[in-house]
Design a protein around this nucleic acid. Sequence first.
DNA 1: TCAAGTTAGTTGATGCTTCAACTATTCCCT
DNA 2: AGGGAATAGTTGAAGCATCAACTAACTTGA
Lengths: 152, 152
Amino acid sequence: MSEPRWLDAAQQRDWRAYVDGSVRLTEMMDRDLKTRHGLSVSEYEILVRLSEAPGHRLRMAELAENASQSRSRLSHTCSRLESKGLVKRDNCGTDKRGVYAQLTDDGFATLERAARDHVEVVREYLIDVIEPEDLEAVGRAFSAVLKRLDAT
Amino acid sequence: MSEPRWLDAAQQRDWRAYVDGSVRLTEMMDRDLKTRHGLSVSEYEILVRLSEAPGHRLRMAELAENASQSRSRLSHTCSRLESKGLVKRDNCGTDKRGVYAQLTDDGFATLERAARDHVEVVREYLIDVIEPEDLEAVGRAFSAVLKRLDAT
DNA sequence: TCAAGTTAGTTGATGCTTCAACTATTCCCT
DNA sequence: AGGGAATAGTTGAAGCATCAACTAACTTGA
């Protein structure tokens, strides 16, 4: 058992700021989306990914991948979205195991409304309060984290 | 209803990298802490805050504040930690409504073990993969976010 | 061709989070 | 003093996430 390499004071401070800020930002956005549009962040993410897909539809596995969710979680969330009428599921012709998640018109309209408000919140609480070059650094930083996570 | 001010392509890219990276990083750390030490991230956070407090104890409200958790959530989590023997609760002498959460010896020992592993993961997946000046930028960025969130 | 292994997706149980409602105590103000 | 408001903390219900187990369909290779 080797000695742990602790973080220095500055690293600790930066790491903590990120953890705290991130948790609280997400909570706030969750509450905001929930109260104004009846959507959780993970439901919202799914609608976003679908809206960007050709024909507003994606195979479940691909959607799960895009939205960084487990397939199980997507299944449950998708069922909820389906019962709200925002998404519907179709069988895939070429692969009988396959299922397409398809954004409904109502789903697209709901997303458009939610996205307007959401982007305002993102601006107000993140984009507008940090320096542009710091935002770029955040982007670089988390891209590197993603790359590291993918190198399993 | 005014036009939404959408994010430009670079802002969108940076924002998404953060959201994705952050979600996946947290998930991975949660799983890691869970499998190796039987702790969730929020349990871990509570133990950390307690370990830093004088006498390894804090009033519930203050602990909730430090750990960015609701009081309700802290109550539940604290009950779980108590049943694991890592924390115990004591009444406060000066305020009969008050309750102290106190880290047990076992709790402190568990935290020390968990922290060693945890800091390694933080290094491996974040600190070591991003440029030092980008980490500083992340710290600045989320400090600003926190400040904005506190300006309710 | 057909059996073993892989992939797609779902399901149900369990556990954690959130929310609103609640008790008990303390503070504040007249 | 004492009545109303605020604060500390808990509780139970409902919703959401996670995990392991499962069915069904596709792929591979001998």
